[in-house]
C-alpha cells in the first residue's frame, strides 16, 4: 500500500468519524473561519481563553471537510487546551504532522494544516496583528 492508505490509520479515521469538540462555543474569545481553496473545505475554529487572557481554556471546531482536515481539527482542539496563545502561534506544519502521527502526502499537507492555520489566523487577528475577515491556506 502506498502513502495514501498509510494516512488513514485508525486514529485518523476515529477522529473523523467521532470528532471531538465539534460545534461552536457559546462565549469564544475569538472565532475564525478559513478555507482550503483547493478542495473548498471550510473550517470554523472557536477559542476561549482563561482569565489570564493567555491560556487556551476551550476549543471547538465546525465545518465539513475531508478525513485529514477534520481529524486534524478534532485532534488540535484537544491538543491546544492548556497551551498559551504564543505556543499556538509557534506551531508549524511539522508539529501538526507529528500530532497526526501519519505520513501526509505532499498534496494533502494543506488539508492537514487547515485547522492550525485557521486557529493561528484567528489568534493573530485577536492580537491585532492581522486584519482580514477570512483567510485561506493558499499562501502556505
Amino acid at each position: 500500500m502506498g502513502l495514501g492508505s498509510d494516512m488513514y490509520r485508525q486514529q485518523i479515521l476515529d477522529h473523523y468519524k467521532n470528532p471531538r469538540n465539534y460545534g461552536e462555543l457559546e462565549d469564544p474569545t475569538f472565532t475564525h473561519i478559513g478555507e482550503n481553496p483547493m478542495c473548498g473545505d471550510e473550517i470554523r475554529m472557536d477559542v476561549k481563553l482563561d482569565d489570564d487572557e493567555e491560556t487556551i481554556e476551550q476549543v471547538a471546531f465546525s465545518g465539513d471537510g475531508c478525513a485529514i482536515s477534520q481529524a486534524s481539527a478534532s485532534m488540535l482542539s484537544g491538543e491546544l487546551r492548556g497551551k498559551t496563545v504564543d505556543e499556538l502561534l509557534e506551531m508549524d506544519r511539522d508539529d501538526v504532522i507529528d500530532m497526526l502521527g501519519v505520513d501526509i502526502s505532499p498534496m494533502r499537507v494543506k488539508c492537514a494544516v487547515l485547522a492550525e492555520k485557521v486557529a493561528q489566523d484567528g489568534a493573530e487577528i485577536y492580537q491585532g496583528d492581522l486584519d482580514v475577515e477570512k483567510t485561506t491556506t493558499e499562501d502556505d
Partner: peptide, 25 residues
C-alpha cells in the same frame, strides 16, 4: 467519503483522477 480522501485511496492503486471543484465552484 470526501472526494479528496477517495482520490488519495485511488492513488494507492495508481489510479490518477482529479478531486476538487474542477474550477466550477
Amino acid at each position: 467519503v470526501h472526494a479528496h480522501d477517495l482520490t488519495s485511496i485511488l492513488n494507492d492503486h495508481t489510479v490518477a483522477v482529479r478531486a476538487g471543484d474542477h474550477c466550477t465552484q
